[in-house]
Design a protein around this nucleic acid. Structure first.
Lengths: 137, 137
DNA sequence: AGCGAACGTTTGACATACATAACATTATTT
DNA sequence: AAATAATGTTATGTATGTCAAACGTTCGCT
């Protein structure tokens, strides 16, 4: 019933996913992530980032130390890595198999990375493995 | 720059797409579509439908006759049919090629139908045609 | 110590998209 | 014609997500 409404029923919104990804990337790239860093990374104002990150803290996806440095919780990191993996699978399928132009493949995989189900992601990956094999090195 | 922000930059929102699809379906199935019919089809209140449809009228995707019967404009129909086509391509790829469970394929294709680019849709379709051929009837 | 920059939060505004509920209008039914 | 039902619109409220601008705190430099 009401399959179309499931669009709203995501564990995570597109915006939230990218806040988590920003922290993941910042931590790996620079070792730390603050509100300002996330805002710069996402090219939004610190006001927006502050509010958005607050709700992610409330959901226990992000933790903050006494110096206001941000980190992903275990759950947050799991979510971020899952999204990242899906995006990579999608991008790879679009760019390498369908031969969609890199720029467009980037956009399309970014738009859908947080929306596809675990089942679809898994089956797409398996499909690509078989496909590469068949194509034969 | 800011590829992740392109999520918002769609011609049409998920919600709007389904309002158009509802009208398309109602017209084909019953010959007419009013605010109430759309609300029932989408399982939202008539209040919400009224407001949502108003903005689609403002964008000239929907026209209304003097009896408040709704129809898609040429542009609205083009948008609706494009979305429908993408959904069918996606569903077919997920269900028939990846063997994603029908229920899940339905959900995933519905979530992404309005997000994938024309290029990706076209190339996915071509890929499937080649794939079916290769599989050879 | 004090000044200014950087940082973070809060406020108020806007846009989308949903809900309820009250209200007006139009149709049906007796 | 009057009562009831169906239809449609218009508040009002919620939630997300953006902005700009004001505010306070904290940090660094002189």
């Amino acid at each position: 019933m009401d399959i179309w409404k499931k669009f709203e029923e995501n564990n995570i919104t597109h915006s939230a996913a990218h806040h988590l990804l920003a922290i993941l990337e910042l931590k790996e790239k620079r070792g730390y992530a603050r509100v300002t860093d996330v805002a710069r990374e996402l090219n939004i104002t610190t006001g927006s980032a502050s509010i958005n990150l607050k709700s992610l803290k409330a959901k226990n996806l992000i933790v903050e130390d006494d110096n206001k440095f941000l980190a992903l919780s275990d759950e947050g990191e799991a979510v971020a890595r899952a999204v990242l993996m899906r995006k990579n699978i999608l991008y790879s399928f679009l760019a390498n198999i369908l031969k969609v132009k890199p720029e467009q493949a980037e956009i399309d995989s970014c738009k859908t990375e947080h929306l596809i189900s675990a089942e679809t992601a898994k089956k797409l990956q398996e499909f690509m493995e078989r496909y590469e094999e068949t194509k034969g090195a």
